[in-house]
């Protein structure tokens, strides 16, 4: 295992300390319990947005804390949901009196730990609503599984709900728009290489030199199927097919297209992926009106990509375009 780390036990703590040092203009950090909050939190009268989950997916979630997006991010150990204590502390820290929205990716651990924190916050008189993000179409049958996983679509949920909160929507309205984004976004990913969790020291799974994993999860969970390496355009077809069928997306739709890197993918490759994805959508009469290309929801050093498509209407587009100022996403200010 080759990593720029000191001790595997201190990875999260030291990375958060570095984040604090680099982005002191945007955030403040609580070290015990550990969470990252917007510098000016709590914003009085504004709905607070808290997300979190295992570390190793950076910039998610800490990179999205700031004006127009999250009020706090709670990093767990690498690939491990945070415990209720820091979630509760973050919830209290950002409550501006208008309630707090928890944005939770659909993993058993995240759901259970946020659930406990929400209960405890409720007992302390803070109104909490929870939105579960489950945009990953790679998981086929939600009836007999833990349900779909929450993956890169989370960025759209956090951006758009954050904008709604910033313009002064109340908790119900912010939660509703977050649900609406989740209902309209679909994602699927592929891994070319596994990643190595620092405390494990071994790759999360094995892939032969000519194999890729279609439908990979963001924790290195094995995906839908393992196939031989193919040209990028074919891989894009495999990812977009299930995405477009699922909502389904239709000719005339306007969409935001995100090509997300898994952490170790060169940007040239992401743009090669974007190119064909945009072509396929255009061929189907689907208009891409907003685009994101880069590392947003990663799996440490994994090589691979995920494609997310979000169906936009005027409201979502307006909220997407609203100013945002975070370490990883910034425009309009």
């Amino acid at each position: 295992m080759k990593k720029l780390i000191n001790d595997p036990k201190n990875v999260v703590e030291e990375a958060v300390a570095g984040f604090e040092a680099a982005h002191g203009d945007l955030v403040t950090v609580s070290h015990d319990p550990i969470f990252i909050a917007r510098k000016d939190a709590p914003v009085s009268g504004k709905v607070g947005l808290v997300s979190g989950g295992g570390s190793g997916h950076e910039p998610l979630h800490g990179g999205f804390v700031g004006y127009g997006m999250l009020d706090a991010a709670v990093p767990g150990a690498v690939f491990t949901s945070p415990t209720p204590d820091p979630i509760l502390a973050a919830t209290k820290a950002v409550d501006g009196g208008a309630g707090v929205l928890h944005i939770v990716k659909n993993y058993t651990g995240d759901v259970l730990n946020f659930e406990t924190a929400a209960d405890l916050a409720g007992a302390d008189g803070i109104e909490v609503r929870t939105v579960i993000v489950d945009d990953d179409v790679a998981v086929k049958d939600s009836l007999y599984t833990a349900g779909r996983r929450g993956v890169a679509g989370t960025v759209f949920v956090e951006k758009i709900a954050g904008a709604a909160a910033e313009r002064g929507d109340d908790l119900a309205a912010v939660a509703d728009v977050a649900e609406k984004v989740n209902a309209n976004v679909r994602t699927m990913g592929v891994a070319l290489t596994p990643c190595v969790v620092p405390h494990a020291g071994e790759p999360s799974f094995e892939l032969a030199d000519d194999e890729i994993e279609i439908g990979i999860g963001i924790h290195g969970e094995p995906g839908r199927e393992r196939i031989k390496l193919e040209p990028a355009d074919k891989i894009v077809d495999r990812l977009l097919g299930p995405i477009l069928e699922d909502l389904p997306f239709a000719s005339g739709d306007k969409v935001a297209l995100m090509v997300n890197g898994m952490g170790g993918t060169p940007q040239v490759e992401l743009y090669i992926v974007y190119r064909h994805a945009a072509q396929v959508l255009a061929d189907k009469g689907i208009e891409v009106t907003r685009s994101l290309v880069g590392n947003f929801v990663t799996s440490l050093e994994m090589q691979g990509t995920s494609i997310s498509v979000l169906k936009l209407d005027d409201e979502l587009t307006e909220l997407y375009d609203a100013p945002v100022q975070t370490a990883a996403l910034r425009w309009g200010r």
Binding site: G54, T80, S81, T108, G109, N113, E115, T116
Partner: peptide
């Protein structure tokens, strides 16, 4: 301290 699914 555990987090994840197994903690709760």
């Amino acid at each position: 301290t555990v987090g994840g699914a197994s903690g709760p």
